[in-house]
Amino acid sequence: MIRVLIADDEPMIRAGVRAVLSTDPGIEIVAEASDGHDAVEQVRRFRPHVAVLDIRMPGTNGIEAAAEIRRTVPATGVVMLTTFGEDDYILQALGGGAAGFLIKSGEPEELIAGVRAVADGAAYLSPKVAARVVAHLSATGAGALAGRRTAARERVHTLTARERDVLAFLGGGLSNGQIARRLHLVEGTVKAHVSSILARLGVDNRAAAAVVAHEAGVVDPAHTP
């Protein structure tokens, strides 16, 4: 069973997330929280596999909670729930170590897929989030979209051919085990490739690497679960 904590300051959103996740018999909701501080305490108490956090909450927000969870309970993966217009928060959460990003108005199937992916050690960016992150980065003064795509392709070009294959699947939200099966490799080899990819790209986590993959245009439907 995948043990999940839900944190959102709006009871109706928590109820909706619980209802969606409860349709999957392999997922168990072990705790709920209404703010980031309580979320961290509940994660320490219940040690869930995944914490689903609203990106904006009163007091300790989701970004701060995600960073604290990563520091104190690194075995718990974090999925951030966001709305359109919160692009800056998404970028901060990427830096804080969150592994999954979902739009609240997205399809219910995406929520389940995101929780399952993060529980399995993968990164999960909903297509809408990935598109918004790439578009937002292009408009922050860091260069035009074409320039960012060129820079991302240059970074990806430093990878070996096999590492580029792994990155494409990583960007599609696949876990190490799923990538291993697609590429007919042992999982330990894929794990080593992922570590090398993160180092070569200069990013801290799989979700940030997934953004680079989307910017470079190496992710297509064939690379999704």
Rank of each mutant, 00 (worst) to 15 (best):
S195Y: 14
D87I: 11
L125K: 03
V194I: 15
D8E: 15
P11A: 08
D38A: 15
S34I: 09
A168Y: 04
R56L: 09
A75T: 15
I197F: 06
L174I: 10
E109T: 14
Y124L: 07
E41M: 08
L159I: 00
G173N: 02
L183E: 08
H157Q: 09
H136V: 01
G59E: 05
T224V: 11
R148C: 07
N61T: 09
E187A: 06
P74Y: 00
R149L: 06
V194E: 13
G143R: 04
R164S: 05
F84L: 14
V190W: 03
L198D: 06
G217Y: 07
G36H: 08
A123C: 04
I6Q: 00
V78K: 04
G147K: 08
V43W: 02
T60W: 15
R71F: 12
E163S: 13
E215Q: 02
A130P: 07
A161W: 13
G16R: 11
R162W: 11
N205S: 01
K128S: 15
R155D: 03
A31M: 02
D24N: 04
E41Y: 03
D38R: 15
F169T: 05
A144Q: 12
R3L: 04
S175R: 05
L183K: 12
P221A: 05
D204T: 08
L145E: 04
P48I: 10
N205M: 07
S196H: 08
I103S: 13
Y89H: 15
T60M: 14
G177Y: 05
V156T: 08
I27N: 08
I2N: 04
T83M: 13
G173L: 04
E10C: 13
L53K: 03
